[in-house]
Simulated assay, not measured.
Amino acid sequence: MLVDYHTHHVRCGHAVGELEEYVQAALAKGVVELGLSDHQPILHLPPDRVAPDSAMRWDQLPDYVEEALSLQAKYAGQIELRVGLEADWIEGQEEAIGRLLAAYPFDYAIGSVHFLGDWDITNSAELWRWAACEPAAVCTEYFRQVRLAAQSGLFDTLGHLDVIKRFGQVSAAQYEHLFEETVVAVREAGVAVEVNASGLRYPCAEQFPSRRLLEMLYSHGVPLTVGSDAHQPSAVGAGLDEVYALLKSVGYRQVCGFRARERYPIAL
C-alpha cells in the first residue's frame, strides 16, 4: 500500500484516536507514506454557530502541528510522514485561508468544499436541509465552488471531488453534465485531485471521484493522490486496495506525494 494522504484524529471532534495511533496503524498495514491532515478550525462562522464536533478549535491547531512534526521526526526511517491540513474552501475567505496555511510548515493542504454558506453538506445531521432545496441547483453551486477552490491557488490537492453524492440525495444525472467544465478548471489550475476511499463506506457506495470522473481527469492529465479519510486508526488504508486497482484500470501509472508544498510522482 503506497500512500494514504487523508486522516483525522481526536482533535477534530468527530474522530477517535491519537495521531501516533494512526502512524502505528499505517506501519502495521504497510503504508509507505502517511499524511496527517486534520480539519482546520472553522473560520467563516461565528463561534456560537460552530458545532463542537465539526473541527479542531483554534487553540488546538498549534499543538496539532507541533505533535505531527514531532512524530515526523520520531518515525523517520520507518515511514514517510507528511504534515498537512484539510482546509475548507469558503468563497470570500481567500485571504484568511492563505494566512492560515502560511502560518505553519505544512507539507500539503487539501482544499475541500464542505460548506455551501452555513450548510455543511457533508454532515449527516444537516440532511434535513435538502427538503427545501432543488437538488440540481445545489449540485450546480457545489461544482462552482469546487472550480473556485481549484482556481484559488491555495491548495495542493482537492478533497473528495464529488462528495455531493455522499448520502444519496442526488443522482448522477443531476450533476454529471458539470464534470467537463470542472475538470478543465482543475487541469488549468494545475492542482491535484484526491481519490478518497471513504465514499465506499457511505450510502453512495463509491469512491470520490466516480470512475467516470476519474476517466475524465486521466484524459486531461490531472495528477491524483489517494486517501482513506480515516476517522479511527483501524480505518487507515481502508478501501485503498480497491482504489489503487481502479486507478490502474483507468490508466494511471503513478500517484503523487507532497513535501514542503511541492508535488512529486510515486510510481504505482
Score class of each variant (00 low, 15 high):
D4L: 05
H6R: 06
H6A: 06
T7Q: 04
T7W: 04
H8Q: 09
H9K: 00
V10A: 15
R11G: 05
R11F: 15
H14W: 10
E20I: 12
E20R: 14
E21L: 06
E21G: 07
Y22D: 04
A25D: 06
K29S: 13
G30T: 13
G30D: 07
E33S: 11
L34S: 04
P41F: 13
I42F: 03
L43F: 14
P52V: 15
D53S: 14
M56H: 07
R57K: 14
Q60H: 02
Q60G: 02
P62V: 15
D63E: 14
Y64R: 07
E66L: 13
E67F: 02
A68N: 10
S70R: 14
S70V: 09
L71T: 11
A73S: 15
K74S: 11
A76H: 08
A76M: 01
A76F: 01
G77P: 02
I79E: 01
L81N: 04
L81F: 06
R82V: 13
A87D: 02
A87T: 12
A87I: 11
A87L: 10
I90V: 15
I90P: 02
E91G: 08
E94T: 12
I97V: 14
R99I: 00
A103H: 00
P105W: 15
P105L: 12
I110A: 09
I110Q: 07
S112G: 13
F115R: 06
D120H: 03
I121P: 01
I121R: 01
E126N: 07
L127Q: 12
W130K: 06
W130S: 04
E134K: 09
P135L: 07
A136N: 00
A137S: 13
A137F: 00
V138P: 12
V138W: 15
C139R: 03
F143I: 07
V146L: 11
R147E: 14
L148E: 15
A149Y: 06
A149V: 12
A150R: 11
Q151D: 09
S152W: 11
G153V: 04
L154W: 08
L154M: 13
D156K: 00
G159E: 15
G159T: 14
L161P: 03
L161I: 15
L161M: 09
D162K: 01
R166G: 01
F167Q: 07
S171L: 12
A173I: 02
E176A: 13
H177S: 13
E180H: 14
T182W: 03
V184C: 02
A185L: 07
E188C: 08
A189C: 06
V193T: 01
A197Q: 05
G199R: 07
G199E: 05
L200W: 08
Y202G: 00
Y202S: 02
A205S: 12
E206A: 06
Q207H: 04
F208Q: 05
F208C: 03
F208I: 04
S210N: 09
R212H: 05
H220I: 00
P223M: 13
T225F: 11
V226C: 07
P233E: 08
S234D: 14
S234M: 10
G239L: 14
L240F: 10
L240T: 01
E242R: 09
Y244S: 05
L246Y: 02
L247F: 12
K248I: 13
G251T: 11
R253M: 06
Q254H: 10
C256Q: 05
G257L: 12
F258V: 03
A260T: 03
Y264R: 00
Y264E: 01
A267I: 09
A267P: 00
L268W: 14
